[in-house]
């Protein structure tokens, strides 16, 4: 059985490869957290889910705190009631994830947006926080 193992690693052993993978993953996480917390000059906050922008509660220059609602999104929810599918349009409050100042608001009320694709606001977040 042991003979069938192929040399599929550039490391001395599988254990070395495991440790290298953990270090690699750790470095990626540190890079992303460090970059987002301290280096990125401005953050493009994208749509939280698919839907239609119902309202935008901030404008250029608005100071925001983590947890503040920055826009609302109209999404379609489906529910079964007594064996019948009912579609409801609901409004979802979307909050900001870090303190900061709004630099720009590219989205407009009525825009159809896709999750993680369309930018809603551009934020200059407080350094050291994770937007």
């Amino acid at each position: 059985m042991s003979e069938k193992k192929q040399s599929m690693t550039v490391f001395r052993s599988d254990r070395h490869e495991d440790v290298a993978a953990m270090i690699f993953a750790g470095l990626v996480v540190l890079f992303v957290l460090g970059y987002m917390a301290f280096i990125v000059p401005e953050v493009h906050v994208t749509a939280a889910m698919d839907g239609k922008v119902a309202s935008i509660l901030v404008q250029s220059g608005t100071e925001v705190k983590k947890g503040d609602t920055i826009y609302t999104l109209e999404v379609v929810e489906k529910k079964w009631v007594n064996n019948v599918m009912q579609e409801n349009t609901v409004i979802k409050d979307i909050t900001v994830k870090a303190d900061g100042k709004v630099l720009d608001v590219p989205a407009k009320v009525g825009d159809k947006v896709k999750k993680s694709k369309n930018t809603i606001i551009v934020l200059n977040h407080v350094k050291g926080t994770l937007p």
Binding site: V28, Y35, M36, V43, H44, V45, T46, K97, S116, P131
Partner: peptide
């Protein structure tokens, strides 16, 4: 690692997808 729905988690997951 950042709040759910944050751009930080989004970037982390983009890296994960590439890796």
């Amino acid at each position: 690692l950042g709040a759910e729905g944050s751009e930080t988690l989004h970037l982390l997951r983009t890296f994960m997808a590439w890796i």
